[in-house]
Simulated assay, not measured.
Amino acid sequence: MTDLAGEIIFHPRSAGGRHWGPPTGESYFPAAAVLAAEKSERDAFSIRVHVAHVPSVTHWTPCTVGALVPGAPGSEAMTPGARSIVYESPHVVGHLRLHGSAEENHTHAGGIARWASAEITSLCGGLSGILDPAVVHDVADLVDHAEPGIALDLLCDKLVDAKASLDVAQRVRLLTVGRAMGLDETVAFLVDAPVEQDD
């Protein structure tokens, strides 16, 4: 079976999720069961998940997914558009949604990441007077290490902490980057925030 591009989200600890939060490594090996129309779910089988960045309990994280043992019962239902429950032992810890083959989605995903990295770097230049230089350095360092999602999380957290007043263009650019990467929750604070009008 060809690996599929998809997205994963974890349940918070308060809702029965992982005790220590989402996994922090690039690869993760849980079990999954594909949801099916004719019954609640198919047989559970082991999978391997490779995440694009540290996953979250608040937003979907891009990933590639494949059956750990090709041909395992239930794995034939892993097709584009399928949705799966993610298990660790008997506990449901998250959900997967599958798109197309990893090969088909790789170029597009890589292009978004490169564009997002360039946008975050550019935005940091305009925010250097608002944020502590150490924060700007840390965000730039994350971008340099191909972690635009984490960089955007940090940038938005620090903007909230600083109660920064952004102009319309800055706000629109941040919203666009966050939504393009599927990090709507990260930039949600901007939707109703007051903005500084351009002169």
Rank of each mutant, 00 (worst) to 15 (best):
E76L: 04
D43M: 14
F29N: 15
A36V: 14
D192R: 11
E41T: 06
S117I: 04
A44L: 06
D138F: 04
I120A: 01
G100T: 12
S128C: 13
A82M: 08
H95T: 11
P133H: 04
A162K: 13
R13P: 04
L175Q: 09
P22N: 14
Y28L: 08
G74D: 07
E147W: 03
D157I: 11
P73D: 03
I112D: 01
H108G: 14
L152K: 00
D184I: 10
I112V: 12
T79R: 13
D153N: 12
G71Y: 10
I9Y: 00
P23F: 01
V191E: 14
T79W: 00
I85H: 03
E38F: 10
D144A: 05
L174H: 05
L96M: 09
V69C: 03
A113P: 00
L98Y: 06
S84M: 12
E41G: 05
S101M: 09
V160K: 15
L175F: 07
H106A: 15
L154Y: 03
G100Q: 08
E38M: 12
F29E: 15
P30F: 06
V65H: 06
V195E: 07
N105K: 15
A32K: 01
E119N: 05
I130F: 01
A5Q: 02
S101L: 02
F45A: 03
D167S: 03
L131D: 06
V136H: 00
V172F: 04
A52G: 13
D161R: 14
S27D: 14
W60D: 04
S46M: 11
I120K: 09
A36L: 15
A72C: 05
D157Y: 09
V54E: 06
